[in-house]
Simulated assay, not measured.
Amino acid sequence: MNKTTQTAPHPYIGMWVTKDGHVRQELLPDGRYDEARGTRQSAYQGDYQVSGNYITYQDDTGFTADGYFENDVLYHGGMVMFREASIN
């Protein structure tokens, strides 16, 4: 099925990381995410949806999670994540 309408990408696309850099989650423009943990690249991958400042995840195994964005910080699964550029 081809999409005939395009919407502007949401402002949260990009790399989000924990302060210690252990968890790195990239939100891709196509509605997919790729999360690395420590030295384990692509530890979790799946789909995500953003509605306002709320995000829901479903990884490729079927596991679901959620989170929210506030003041350019992502709160997800007990983690606090920042835009990669903002912690350097």
Score class of each variant (00 low, 15 high):
4 T>I: 13
32 R>S: 14
12 Y>M: 04
13 I>K: 04
72 D>K: 12
7 T>F: 14
69 F>T: 04
30 D>K: 09
81 M>S: 04
41 Q>D: 11
85 A>N: 12
29 P>I: 10
28 L>P: 00
7 T>V: 15
78 G>F: 06
58 Q>V: 13
11 P>H: 05
47 D>Q: 12
62 G>I: 06
31 G>S: 08
15 M>Y: 07
74 L>R: 05
37 R>S: 06
60 D>Y: 06
60 D>V: 05
31 G>T: 04
11 P>K: 12
73 V>I: 14
80 V>M: 08
12 Y>H: 14
28 L>D: 07
33 Y>S: 01
74 L>T: 02
83 R>K: 15
18 T>G: 06
11 P>Y: 01
13 I>F: 06
16 W>G: 08
39 T>C: 01
78 G>C: 07
32 R>A: 10
71 N>G: 00
66 D>E: 15
7 T>M: 12
35 E>F: 04
35 E>Y: 01
17 V>T: 14
50 V>M: 08
73 V>S: 03
79 M>K: 13
76 H>G: 00
22 H>I: 14
18 T>C: 03
12 Y>I: 00
48 Y>R: 04
51 S>F: 02
14 G>Q: 08
32 R>V: 02
33 Y>I: 05
19 K>R: 15
47 D>W: 06
48 Y>Q: 01
28 L>V: 03
24 R>E: 07
87 I>W: 04
71 N>R: 09
73 V>H: 06
45 Q>P: 05
79 M>Q: 13
73 V>C: 02
66 D>C: 10
20 D>M: 02
10 H>D: 14
33 Y>K: 07
84 E>T: 03
80 V>G: 03
26 E>G: 04
61 T>E: 12
57 Y>L: 13
70 E>K: 15
56 T>N: 10
38 G>R: 06
61 T>V: 11
34 D>W: 12
38 G>N: 02
24 R>W: 01
75 Y>P: 00
53 N>I: 00
19 K>C: 02
65 A>Q: 09
